[in-house]
Amino acid sequence: MITNFFEGIGAYALLMTKVFRRPDRWKLFYRALVKEIQLLGLDSIGIVVILSVFMGGVVTIQTAFQLSDDPLIPTYYIAMATRESITLEFSPTVVSLILAGKVGSNVASSLGTMRVSEQIDALEVMGVNSASFLILPKIVAQLLFNPILIIMSLFLGLWGGAMAGDLLGLVPFEESVMGYRLEFIPFENAFYALIKTVVFAFIIGSVSAYSGYTVKGGAVEVGVASTNAVVRSCLAIILANYLLTDLILTS
């Protein structure tokens, strides 16, 4: 099992050296990139919107439940704690985990199907660097679009939190806004969230592509690869999250 793990790491690294090559034709690369942004990015907006709004609401309610017993704590502190939770963890990490499920399975199953139906062999026979041609646009699309999704998620999460607080009478909307602005260091918080987002986007794109591209067999194996893509991406995100949190916040 340990040998398999290290063999897998080696195969992944070798695949990435094939992926990050100059595209044969830039025109085809840009065309594929636009398509991937549509498929992997724009099509994920709906789930990110719903998830972020409700996640913000839940975080506000949970925080209010913990702090509202103490009359000495001003209610805008609930909003401030909500802001910290959403900015530092919930938006970059939880949304990336959801995207690993949605986008990762899509990438792995589409590449796996191309592998078992010999479409990747057809590209290789033509002399096309299939790894670069197929995987690079997917990774670049996520590196470009996931930060946009996460910034959107931050705003929606905060809005959802403020709305939930106001509707349930926990924190008035104006106090939520005040709490969100309290001791906020935009560059530090946003920078931290975006660094994590970019790393997670690379993990989702590359790990799921590796799972799909290396499929051997038929339809059953494509299904297994799709599951593996999600599991591997999620594990890698959780591990990277721990390392990045330690690295950025403690330095």
Binding site: T113, E118, D121
Partner: peptide, 8 residues
Amino acid sequence: FQGGALFD
């Protein structure tokens, strides 16, 4: 190719 291997 045996199955055509056309790009879907």
